[in-house]
Simulated scan of single mutants.
Amino acid sequence: MIKAIALDDEPPALDILQSFCEKINTIDLQKTFTKSEDAFKYLKKYPVDLLFLDINMPAISGIDFYKKLPHKTMVIFTTAYSEYAVEGFTLSATDYLLKPISLARFEQAVEKAYTQWKTQNQNPEQQYLFIRADYSLIKILLSDILFIEGLDDYLKIHIQNQKTIVARMTLKAILEKLPEIDFVRVHRSFIVSISKIEKVRNKMIHINNEEIPISASYETTFFALLNKQ
């Protein structure tokens, strides 16, 4: 079950979140807070899996609060102002809920968080893909993937200490099968494993003696994700 807290300066908004959480058996809303300093003290002592976080608060914005967190935590932003959505997703938020929040939309956001949580809590040795290549289905451990290169309708999957696998598949299709927390697209032709990055210099990612470019359209999301590691 997902452990969660909620922070919102308006108590009625917290009451709604509390009532919604009570209707969903995959989430345990442990506490609610109206003051950011109280929530921050709690999180330093008791890390949780998920944070429901209002963006427009008087003392500190939810976005600035999230950037200060000492632990890596999933976040679902809540706000009455749609203009904050882009910045929220730049921070790799799990979801963004616009007030007033419906139960159906809330359930959808929590389901996304639950899927992400299950992926993060699987045994890494059990995380794998079956890829069709060389007239076979080949099992590939996600922990062995260095990066993936897209060539039109083909992929080259570069694997640690193994032969590169060439498969007829698109980058978009394989990205949907990969856990968001571990893999990120950095270029129209490249997906990289975050854990395999050795260094980033001059907008080039270095992995296993290979240099992978970061394109302008993926740069903001990529660096925001690195800052949350």
Rank of each mutant, 00 (worst) to 15 (best):
residue 139 K to R: 14
residue 117 W to R: 12
residue 48 V to R: 09
residue 151 L to D: 15
residue 79 T to W: 03
residue 7 L to N: 05
residue 73 T to R: 09
residue 49 D to F: 04
residue 176 E to P: 00
residue 120 Q to N: 14
residue 8 D to M: 06
residue 7 L to V: 03
residue 177 K to N: 11
residue 114 Y to L: 06
residue 108 Q to F: 12
residue 210 E to A: 09
residue 119 T to E: 14
residue 205 I to Q: 10
residue 152 D to R: 06
residue 209 N to E: 10
residue 67 K to N: 06
residue 166 V to R: 03
residue 71 H to T: 09
residue 156 K to T: 03
residue 71 H to P: 02
residue 46 Y to Q: 11
residue 104 A to S: 07
residue 6 A to S: 03
residue 210 E to N: 10
residue 108 Q to E: 15
residue 46 Y to E: 15
residue 186 V to W: 00
residue 16 I to F: 08
residue 133 A to M: 03
residue 124 P to I: 08
residue 62 G to H: 02
residue 172 K to E: 15
residue 45 K to C: 06
residue 195 S to E: 14
residue 46 Y to K: 12
residue 224 A to G: 07
residue 219 E to P: 01
residue 126 Q to W: 12
residue 164 T to F: 10
residue 73 T to I: 13
residue 148 I to V: 04
residue 222 F to M: 00
residue 32 T to G: 04
residue 56 N to Y: 10
residue 69 L to M: 03
residue 97 L to N: 09
residue 35 K to P: 02
residue 178 L to T: 05
residue 178 L to M: 09
residue 226 L to F: 01
residue 83 E to I: 01
residue 4 A to I: 05
residue 28 D to G: 06
residue 17 L to W: 07
residue 106 F to N: 06
residue 119 T to Y: 15
residue 53 L to P: 04
residue 217 S to K: 10
residue 45 K to E: 14
residue 38 D to V: 08
residue 166 V to D: 06
residue 176 E to K: 15
residue 139 K to F: 11
residue 211 E to H: 02
residue 112 K to C: 14
residue 213 P to A: 00
residue 131 I to W: 06
residue 97 L to Q: 06
residue 144 D to S: 06
residue 154 Y to G: 07
residue 172 K to D: 08
residue 149 E to T: 04
residue 68 K to A: 05
residue 148 I to D: 03
residue 111 E to N: 14
residue 68 K to Q: 13
residue 35 K to W: 05
residue 70 P to W: 08
residue 19 S to N: 11
residue 115 T to V: 15
residue 26 T to D: 15
residue 9 D to K: 04
residue 114 Y to V: 14
residue 189 S to F: 08
residue 190 F to T: 03
residue 158 H to G: 09
residue 224 A to V: 01
residue 113 A to F: 02
residue 50 L to I: 04
residue 197 I to Q: 02
residue 64 D to Q: 04
residue 7 L to K: 00
residue 155 L to F: 14
residue 166 V to C: 10
residue 19 S to V: 03
residue 131 I to M: 15
residue 77 F to G: 13
residue 125 E to A: 11
residue 109 A to C: 02
residue 192 V to N: 11
residue 82 S to W: 05
residue 37 E to G: 10
residue 221 T to E: 07
residue 143 S to R: 12
residue 140 I to C: 12
residue 122 Q to S: 07
residue 19 S to K: 13
residue 9 D to L: 01
residue 178 L to K: 15
residue 137 L to R: 12
residue 63 I to K: 01
residue 151 L to H: 05
residue 13 A to K: 00
residue 1 M to T: 05
residue 213 P to K: 01
residue 20 F to A: 01
residue 189 S to M: 09
residue 177 K to T: 13
residue 123 N to D: 15
residue 73 T to M: 15
residue 206 H to N: 14
